[in-house]
């Protein structure tokens, strides 16, 4: 591997930042007011639009509430009802299925894309193209695929028939609906995720690759033994973000299947929305949201612990 300046630059800034904390500690707190002023708008937004609604949702989950008349406190009844609600458990299973397919395919594809971009091209054009699907609104992407995959008129099925393959009801068949939705969203997000990972790849010093090459490692081996392990902190961050985002799948379902066929795509967020906004069971919907919140917090915590996201293996090298 030839050395190149693109890799050298991040190394320098990293070295600098590693040396930074002691110096910063020595400084006076003169910047604090300004720092607070900068943080304030975001903090205010967080409290107003996230913290307060979250706390209120916890309270509402203990009530019977149809929005239009005042909430009535009913204790833990909503949570009790939740345990026996087959649609809630179905929603969890369906959502999990979606997350596994979506994240699994997306992660593999995006790492592959990122490594290809890293090793083969510096072209800004290619990076732009890879990002393109992400720039189209989710709902538009969903609807375009919905029509392209239509059984009778969709272009994909016309193509399948032309190839001599049987037509498929991608969104209409229970077994296919979730994989279809998961892959449509993968298509949209893979470029963005790939760019995040690509940024992570640029953090890896080229000297490591050179050393590996001198030791006689081929591309394949370098990927498994050097690239992937050193990518771990970035991957951890990407995974936490994408997994939580994946659990929150909603709009694609809302504009295509609407939870169907039967309950095959009634993912948890859509179920919550349906309960609240079409059936007026806001208290119960809040209980579901609360459970989902705890679940997602747990998933994120586990991921961070398991992947040791705060540490880097570069220090030891």
């Amino acid at each position: 591997m030839t050395s190149d300046t693109v890799h050298a630059a991040p190394r320098r800034t990293e070295a600098a930042s590693r040396g930074a904390p002691p110096r910063r500690r020595g400084r006076r707190l003169g910047d604090l007011p300004i720092a607070l002023a900068f943080v304030l708008p975001a903090a205010l937004g967080f409290v107003l639009f996230y913290l307060w609604p979250t706390l209120r949702a916890f309270y509402l989950s203990l009530t019977q509430y149809n929005v239009l008349t005042p909430p009535r406190f009913i204790g833990l009844d909503n949570y009790e009802r939740l345990l026996g609600d087959h649609l809630f458990w179905n929603a969890l299973v369906v959502t999990a299925e979606y997350v596994v397919i979506n994240i699994g395919v997306q992660t593999v594809m995006s790492v592959l894309l990122a490594v290809l971009m890293h090793r083969l091209t510096r072209s800004m054009f290619v990076r732009g193209v890879v990002l393109l699907p992400f720039l189209v609104a989710n709902v538009v992407v969903a609807l375009v695929w919905f029509w392209m995959l239509d059984y009778q008129l969709g272009i994909v099925n016309q193509g399948l028939e032309w190839l001599g393959v049987d037509r498929l009801a991608f969104f209409g068949e229970s077994e296919l609906a979730i994989p279809t939705i998961a892959l449509v969203n993968t298509w949209r997000h893979v470029g963005y995720t790939a760019l995040l990972i690509f940024a992570g790849l640029q953090m890896i010093p080229s000297s490591v690759y050179e050393a590996a090459a001198i030791d006689g490692a081929g591309e394949w081996r370098i990927f498994w033994r050097v690239t992937l392990p050193l990518l771990r902190p970035v991957m951890a961050l990407v995974m936490v973000l994408t997994v939580i985002g994946s659990f929150q799948v909603f709009d694609t379902v809302a504009v295509t299947t609407g939870g169907g066929p039967i309950n095959a795509t009634r993912v948890i967020y859509y179920y919550i929305y349906d309960l609240a906004f079409t059936r007026f069971h806001f208290g119960y919907a809040a209980a579901l949201s609360s459970v989902l919140f705890v679940l997602l917090a747990g998933v994120a915590y586990l991921q961070l612990r398991l992947s040791r996201a705060g540490e880097s293996d570069l220090k030891g090298s």
Binding site: F146, W147, L149, D150, Y151, Q152, L153, G154, A169, F170, F171, G172, E173, A177, T256, T257, G260, P261
Partner: peptide, 11 residues
């Protein structure tokens, strides 16, 4: 008549 899978999704 088309099945639900065919008629229930898409156009």
């Amino acid at each position: 008549m088309p099945s639900m899978a065919i008629a229930g999704a898409g156009v």
